[in-house]
Design a protein around this nucleic acid. Structure first.
Lengths: 219, 219
DNA sequence: ATAAATTTTTAGATTTGTCTAAATTATAAT
DNA sequence: ATTATAATTTAGACAAATCTAAAAATTTAT
């Protein structure tokens, strides 16, 4: 299937925002894309029709598998072109973003693959961002544990320490999952426990032990 | 100024048709672009507003200096990308047209110039078509004299043998100029003269001598 | 728990680029 | 020189992507 430049830009923006907050809101998107919230609502309805994302009115949006796949292919094209512009055409690394924004929408699988080969299968673009391979796989960004996070520093959950049912059950009750955005409000020196805030949730306290098993990325 | 993909495609199509018939009609354009004549009329009005062409309702269209300049810059981008796709990405020469149709609309002067340099300032694309330089200059296509043209073969006037006022006066009377589209209807073996047809003109006969001083390109 | 503030959606409009059907103008044929 | 044919334009409609203003739903604060 083929998508318009506008549709691809929405998918890309949702993907980017999802990295730091798995549930993306209309306002966040409108700011990211420099459009009005009403325009975002319209487009989300269209993209839901096209089965690229989950969208519930008033409750934000999340890419589904097809949406993520599309997002990664756009990001792949963008970063390959950035590499080309700097490595072959000798652009400065900070001058290539806008041109790559246009080139990324040229949709030809054959072109992307041949470009990748021509460039020698680069692993990262000139800004250091990893380039997804043709299957959408790329290196994970590095994480820190929630225990190491600074107070008042917004962050998002990226992984958990183990898959034990005890841990998962506790996370479920605390309404913490991959993609949950949170912030440390207070640190208790007595036992090293922390008090965190999640949007739409009351303040809750996590033990030192639990915090060490939750991995986050700062926003 | 910046132009949409649709606008650029119209300008390019008009330019292409102008090469063989300086006055381009609505129907010719609609066929070239696979759109309906009514859509062409709409777009011509918009492009006239943008001062890229001369357009008189019912009397066809002609690019002005700005339109030609734009056309040549699009053709330049198209042919440079074709060269890139074949020379660097190892595409077959007959597989690159559609991809270049997309790449040509990426508008960045800096990109075009750096691409040209990277490719080593190629003179022609993989199909042998000349690549305009940054000023829009390119090699002229080769011509034959009207005297050598086959009967029933449509052709267009590209040049005249000399600039003598006697010749120009005669051409003016015969309503023949650069870009005039014509066809040989009959050849008189007695004196080598030819009878030609120009759209909207009655049949007229040209001497052997005159025909040798008019240069045409077959359509 | 209700009111105030914020966020989101709906309704209606606009621009670009296209279409179909009807009307108009130009060209060709008798 | 008129009529028939062909080309072109006009009128009205539609989809995509956007906007503003108003309405509705949700969240926050008292």
């Amino acid at each position: 299937m083929n998508f318009s430049t506008a549709e691809e830009n929405y998918i890309k923006a949702i993907w980017r925002l999802q990295q730091t907050d798995s549930n993306v809101t209309t306002n966040e998107l409108s700011e990211e894309l420099h459009t009005k919230p009403a325009s975002v609502t319209d487009m989300l309805k269209r993209l839901k029709e096209k089965k690229l994302l989950h969208y519930e009115p008033y409750y934000g949006v999340k890419l589904n598998a097809d949406g993520k796949k599309l997002a990664l292919s756009i990001i792949r094209r963008h970063r390959l072109w950035e590499f080309f512009l700097v490595d072959k055409l000798k652009f400065e690394w900070d001058a290539v973003h806008e041109i790559a924004e246009q080139l990324e929408h040229v949709s030809s699988h054959e072109l992307t693959e041949r470009l990748d080969a021509f460039l020698g299968y680069p692993k990262a673009d000139p800004h250091g961002d990893p380039i997804p391979d043709r299957n959408g796989k790329m290196e994970a960004a590095s994480n820190i544990s929630l225990h190491e996070l600074k107070e008042q520093q917004a962050a998002v959950v990226t992984a958990v320490g183990d898959q034990s049912s005890n841990l998962l059950e506790m996370l479920r009750q605390k309404k913490i999952g991959i993609g949950t955005k949170l912030e440390i409000k207070q640190r208790f020196l007595f036992d090293g426990s922390i008090e965190i805030k999640i949007r739409n949730q009351p303040l809750t306290t996590l033990s030192d032990h639990l915090a060490k098993n939750i991995f986050v990325k700062t926003v």
